[in-house]
């Protein structure tokens, strides 16, 4: 008997349990990442880390700043297409206009306009062997006003 009035084996058991629970509590506090549980049962900082990548595509609005003339003149058909669909990821060019954008060829037109039975019929399509073979598309079609010729 001791001053708690408990048999020694019970006291030892209580102390041991307290030690285990205490160690668990300390370990849990130390090991759980700081933002765990901020939004749910996961690390809240994972959202921030996923969002920290740098975008490569600048977005259609970015081009307007310096090339608003192009987007204003663009006509039916190609008006709704984002600049970067054709000119490809250009955020480097937006930050520094000296870095040129990708050079475009006839293949970039044909990617959208070569005929394919799986394409919706209302989409304007051409067959290369029939549609003025040997000439470049932009010799007859302005890229931003495709129904006009230069």
């Amino acid at each position: 008997m001791n001053r708690f009035g408990l048999p020694p084996q019970i006291l030892r058991l209580v102390l041991l349990t307290a030690l285990i629970v205490g160690t668990y509590a300390v370990a849990r506090t130390l090991l759980t990442p700081a933002t765990f549980g901020q939004y749910g049962h996961y690390r809240g900082a994972a959202l921030e880390e996923t969002a920290s990548r740098k975008p490569l595509f600048a977005g259609a609005k970015a081009c307007d700043e310096c090339h608003s003339d192009v987007s204003e003149k663009a006509t039916k058909g190609h008006k709704l297409i984002s600049c970067e669909s054709c000119h490809s990821a250009s955020s480097a060019h937006v930050r520094n206009p000296d870095i040129t954008t990708v050079k475009l060829t006839d293949n970039s037109c044909l990617r959208c306009h070569s005929s394919d039975p799986a394409r919706p019929a209302r989409h304007k399509q051409v067959t290369t062997i029939e549609h003025y073979p040997g000439d470049h598309c932009i010799e007859c079609h302005l890229p931003h006003q495709p129904n006009k010729s230069p």
Binding site: T50, A51, K54, P55, L56, F57, E84, S85
Partner: peptide
Amino acid sequence: HRITRGLQPACVEV
């Protein structure tokens, strides 16, 4: 990383 900056996903953009 795009939608959190007010841009559209790359596939939607192009």
